[in-house]
């Protein structure tokens, strides 16, 4: 299964404060360990929300709101995409993540939707779509 590991923003990350050299080194080692475990599919770190914008849909035209955004617990500072066997495996890996002592930090792990998760709900639609694609490509091939 795939999970997205969401590193939540903190006051420090929102203020653009860099972690200590020591923590950066430890994080580097940790990241390397994850890569060596064949786990990491993708991952990025994000600039503070002061550099971001929000586009809000509602009544009328979409409204563009410039950062920073205040509710830092709801903001994210970065993410990884991991390939794991279970949620427990993801949790066990996260427990090994280095952290600064006394520094509060939330990490959220969310499973990524996979085709099977859609179950029967989308099946008729998908089937129709595939039938159509097949018909199209058959027509294309026979036209050649």
């Amino acid at each position: 299964m795939r999970v997205m590991v969401i590193v939540k923003a903190s006051q420090a990350s929102e203020a653009g404060v860099m972690p200590s050299t020591d923590l950066l080194t430890q994080m580097g080692n940790y990241n390397e360990e994850l890569v060596k475990a064949g786990l990491i599919l993708a991952g990025e770190g994000l600039h503070p929300s002061s550099k971001g914008v929000r586009v809000r849909f509602g009544q009328g035209q979409p409204k563009v709101i410039d950062g920073p955004f205040t509710e830092s617990k709801e903001l994210i500072a970065g993410f990884w995409l991991w390939q794991v066997k279970s949620m427990e495996e993801a949790v066990e890996w996260i427990k090994r993540m280095p952290q600064e002592a006394g520094f509060e930090q939330d990490i959220e792990i969310r499973p990524v939707f996979e085709a099977d998760d859609f179950g029967d709900v989308l099946t008729p639609e998908l089937r129709a779509q595939e039938e159509r694609l097949r018909a199209e490509s058959e027509a294309r091939l026979s036209a050649k």
């Binding site: 599919l41 993708a42 085709a115 008729p124 089937r127 779509q129 595939e130 694609l133 097949r134 058959e138």
Partner: peptide, 28 residues
């Protein structure tokens, strides 16, 4: 994800819905 249809029957490469190919794995 694109190799079989809803009935579990195989779909050959030329007929596959390429929108269902996993772009992340392709990039990797």
């Amino acid at each position: 994800p694109a190799r079989s249809n809803a009935k579990g029957e195989p779909i050959l490469l030329m007929d596959q819905n390429r929108a269902r190919w996993d772009q992340l794995l392709i990039r990797r």
